[in-house]
């Protein structure tokens, strides 16, 4: 697939991006519908509601923003959305070594579409050739972005037609379980995921999902310490 004379196979990168994103795009549909319904039920102007998908492009933060705009102060809505989105700082740090061989324009464009799913898929391609990685990332990111805008608008008008009884909102949880399992390649990785999940579970009662950040921080530390301990034991 990757002959050195012709460079990386970009058509393959595109196909691979579509293949790997497709199952993740499916659960984004009901989430976008949930968001659309929340917009239509909130006192927020519908146009501004759809604009949050364009400007913020992060489902959980948008949902918090939209539901708080009606009930709390505008600053509470802003603070909640930003705390929920703070995990992206860690994504940015984790991706920075991969962007070393990438051109400047791509470093500016890529963060705009850096949602959870794109991050998870991109990390699985960390060792790919730069041009291959770039094509994979751009195709994946633009698919998630265009789908998100589309389902937000569709959800605004048709969201109430999905029966609540099938509880389609559980689908993202299954998808991310799969992504975690794909992402762990060694024992410290398993420990990082397990500690991240357990600490987050223990701190669920804290406001604005800060438990997510505490859990993530503890998980990274646990994974790194586990790697040091396992290294020392094997030498």
């Amino acid at each position: 697939m990757h002959s050195p004379s012709t460079g990386p196979d970009l058509a393959h990168a595109r196909r691979q991006a579509i293949k790997e994103s497709a199952p993740l795009l499916i659960p984004a549909v009901p989430f976008g519908f949930v968001l659309g319904v929340a917009i239509s039920e909130s006192p927020l102007n519908n146009g501004v509601g759809v604009f949050t998908s364009l400007a913020i492009f992060a489902g959980a933060a948008q949902l918090a923003f939209i539901s708080l705009v009606g009930t709390a102060s505008i600053w509470a809505a802003i603070a909640a959305a930003l705390v929920i989105n703070a995990r992206h700082v860690m994504y940015s740090a984790a991706l920075s070594p991969i962007f070393k061989p990438q051109p400047r324009w791509f470093r500016w464009v890529a963060p705009y579409v850096l949602v959870d799913q794109v991050f998870a898929l991109a990390m699985q391609h960390a060792d790919d050739e730069p041009a291959y990685f770039r094509r994979f990332y751009l195709v994946t990111g633009s698919m998630f972005f265009s789908l998100w805008i589309t389902v937000t608008i569709l959800g605004l008008f048709f969201g109430s037609f999905i029966p609540e009884s099938i509880q389609i909102g559980f689908a993202p949880a299954i998808m991310f379980t799969g992504l975690v399992i794909f992402g762990v390649t060694n024992r410290p990785g398993v420990i990082a995921a397990a500690v991240g999940a357990s600490v987050c579970f223990a701190t669920l009662g804290l406001p604005n999902r800060v438990g997510l950040l505490i859990g993530a921080g503890c998980g990274v530390a646990a994974g790194y310490v586990a790697e040091l301990v396992l290294d020392r034991r094997s030498t």
Binding site: P97, P172, A173, V180, A192, A197, F201, R209, G217, G223
Partner: peptide
């Protein structure tokens, strides 16, 4: 250490998706 960001954050994120804080 940064290599453990993905499993740690995604593990925690899965919990918030399941348990719906």
């Amino acid at each position: 250490a940064l290599r453990y960001v993905a499993p740690a954050v995604l593990g925690a994120l899965t919990v918030t998706l399941v348990a719906d804080p």
